[in-house]
Design a protein around this nucleic acid. Structure first.
Lengths: 148, 148
DNA sequence: CTTTTTGCAAAGCGTTTGCATTGAA
DNA sequence: TTCAATGCAAACGCTTTGCAAAAAG
């Protein structure tokens, strides 16, 4: 059953590539599969380190470019950062973020109240509103106890 | 009256420096004054370009380091970014952001409904919650009409 | 066969660091 | 007089670019 889901996801990914005239290469499949596996918000470098274990000949460059390409077609999102390397979010459905200001960990969460937040009408008139996100800045459980 | 506010702000800035054992240098004052003037979300480079007009001998380095120091003591915030240079927010009171996904412009706005959003109790228990922000992703008025 | 993608290397930004000099307190 | 801050230059990290070789369609 999990196998079914995986291959469904893979098929619709391949379909998406076709729609965008992107060739389906082993490298792109490897990056995609790692994205579906990830529950994190990895940088390109982090993705590269994981993927190269299974695919030693892949280059950092390809991983990075693939992630940027995927961001353009909506396979990943780029998440908000505060100075470090660009980070990607495999979860493209609407959700919200806890962000530890000490260690930069980002934790996804769902919240209906936040999803249902009204967007002020004046903004809808003036702009094209693509989406919204609530970010809660926190000091996470791991960092809270560490002396400074 | 505006002058009164300015010198009030300056005095409390100087006071803040003293509390944090920071020396009050002409460079720091120049950066601070430019911050109070700014309604934008400038990068260190942008701040440098503006400040050097009034203070030609200041170095990029000092501007950058000063902004980082100010971020530590709460004179500025670092705002969420999506890959470009780190950007600073002179407005440190609670507010929310419109963010154009095309040109990266950030527009501040106030919204009581958003300010009043409850923070899920489970997060308050597990973490130290420092603050929250709603980010609305938009295509801004200037970018909307530009052909792509 | 054509066109995109890959891997590599170099270049390009932006940020950070080390250090001698300067200046605030 | 002391110690932090500044300016400069070099180092560093991350991202982007150009290009020849390889692979997808």
């Amino acid at each position: 059953m999990q196998g079914e889901n995986d291959s469904d996801e893979l098929s619709s990914f391949i379909e998406k590539c076709r729609r965008h005239n992107l060739k389906v290469t082993p490298q792109r499949i490897a990056v995609f599969k790692e994205l579906t596996r990830s529950k994190d918000h990895p940088s390109a470098a982090a993705m590269f380190e994981i993927i190269r274990k299974q695919f030693p000949s892949i280059s950092f460059d390809t991983v990075n470019r693939t992630l940027l390409t995927f961001a353009e077609i909506g396979v990943v999102d780029v998440v908000e950062g505060y100075g470090g390397p660009r980070r990607f979010d495999p979860e493209t459905e609407s959700h919200h973020h806890l962000r530890c200001t000490r260690c930069d960990r980002i934790i996804d969460f769902q919240c209906e109240d936040y999803d249902n937040l009204a967007i002020p009408e004046k903004f809808q008139r003036k702009f094209t509103v693509l989406g919204k996100r609530v970010v809660l800045n926190i000091i996470c459980d791991k960092c809270k106890d560490v002396a400074r």
